[in-house]
């Protein structure tokens, strides 16, 4: 079902990860990784366990400071012309011009607030003791703070804050409805079943009105039906709502079903970067997933002996 849109050189990217390297002591978690995510695309980042996918997310969203490399994020298409000038300057963003951000220079909360990159977590991080609706309201902290004139106006119930509040409620209701949690809006988030919690986390990230949504294994632990619903939700976000998506996922039904473009990571290195069809048949990717040598796979692909793959150890789901 992958769209036929071509990811050619003519399109300028929304997110551009360039020569990203991340070291933890002696461990090289990401090794000179470069890839782009385009506006309106669902880009998938896949790879075996421990390949460094979550680490890439943590670098993009500012939770880790990369050892080396540059992460550009542009709100407008022509912004990348200025990236070298911006890098040479001491600034972290080019707000006057065309809204270009260097994410590796920004603290985590500014990446969400100003650059508008939202994320979810591999192990869900909801505000468990707060209700579903409150979770979505917390996500709208920045605009609500402005509306409440940094609390002073809100304290006296000024009209500006009331308007801001009802606008925030509308947005929350919209996403509650989209993820099918309207009925549970007033229940504590920790009381929701697992699948609902995953969707709530996505809704919460969407309430920050991001330009790029980074999802870390959103289908993990979901059953077949839930994972099909997730596909639909992600297609809505990526294609109708117009928020680009960067997706880490092990579930190949999800990845192959909805992504426009896939980057494959193995031991921190990019081993492939192409459309789903190409990735599906790439021997390097199959080898990485099965934990065997590339030649073995090519051989296996040529001679269709079914047992061969199952015999090799280390296959990941």
């Amino acid at each position: 079902m992958a769209t036929t849109r071509k990811t050619t050189m003519t399109r300028t990217p929304l997110l551009s990860v360039q020569h990203l390297t991340m070291r933890f002591g002696g461990l090289l978690a990401i090794d000179n990784l470069s890839f782009d995510a385009y506006k309106g695309d669902i880009t998938a980042l896949i790879g075996p366990n421990g390949a460094g996918k979550t680490t890439v997310f943590n670098c993009i969203t500012g939770f880790y400071k990369p050892t080396e490399g540059r992460i550009g994020f542009a709100h407008e298409t022509d912004a990348y012309d200025k990236i070298d000038a911006l890098t040479a300057s001491a600034n972290r963003s080019d707000i006057h011009g065309s809204a270009l951000y260097l994410l590796e220079r920004m603290p985590d909360f500014e990446i969400s607030r100003d650059a508008k990159v939202a994320r979810t977590f591999q192990n869900i991080r909801l505000f468990g003791g707060m209700t579903v609706l409150e979770n979505l309201m917390v996500a709208q902290h920045a605009p609500l703070m402005t509306a409440s004139s940094f609390t002073f106006g809100g304290l006296f119930g000024l009209k500006k804050y009331q308007d801001g509040h009802s606008h925030a409620m509308e947005l929350a209701k919209f996403w509650l409805n989209k993820v099918g949690l309207t009925e549970r809006a007033d229940d504590p988030a920790a009381d929701l079943p697992y699948g609902d919690q995953r969707r709530l986390e996505i809704a919460r990230a969407m309430c920050t009105e991001p330009k790029l949504l980074c999802l870390d294994e959103p289908a993990a632990g979901l059953n077949g039906k839930e994972s099909a619903e997730l596909n639909e939700l992600l297609l809505f976000i990526g294609k109708e709502h117009g928020t680009s998506v960067l997706l880490i996922e092990h579930d190949m039904n999800v990845v192959m079903g909805i992504s426009d473009h896939i980057a494959v990571l193995d031991y921190g290195k990019k081993i492939a970067d192409a459309s789903p069809e190409e990735i599906r048949n790439d021997p390097k990717v199959i080898a990485a997933y099965l934990g065997v040598d590339e030649d073995e796979v090519e051989e296996a692909v040529k001679t269709p002996v079914k047992k061969k793959a199952a015999k090799s150890k280390g296959a990941k789901k």
Binding site: F121, V138, R204
Partner: peptide, 16 residues
Amino acid sequence: EALREDEIACRSLGIN
């Protein structure tokens, strides 16, 4: 209150 619940999630939502 969100801070009390989960600081990392707060930061991911743009809260200083």
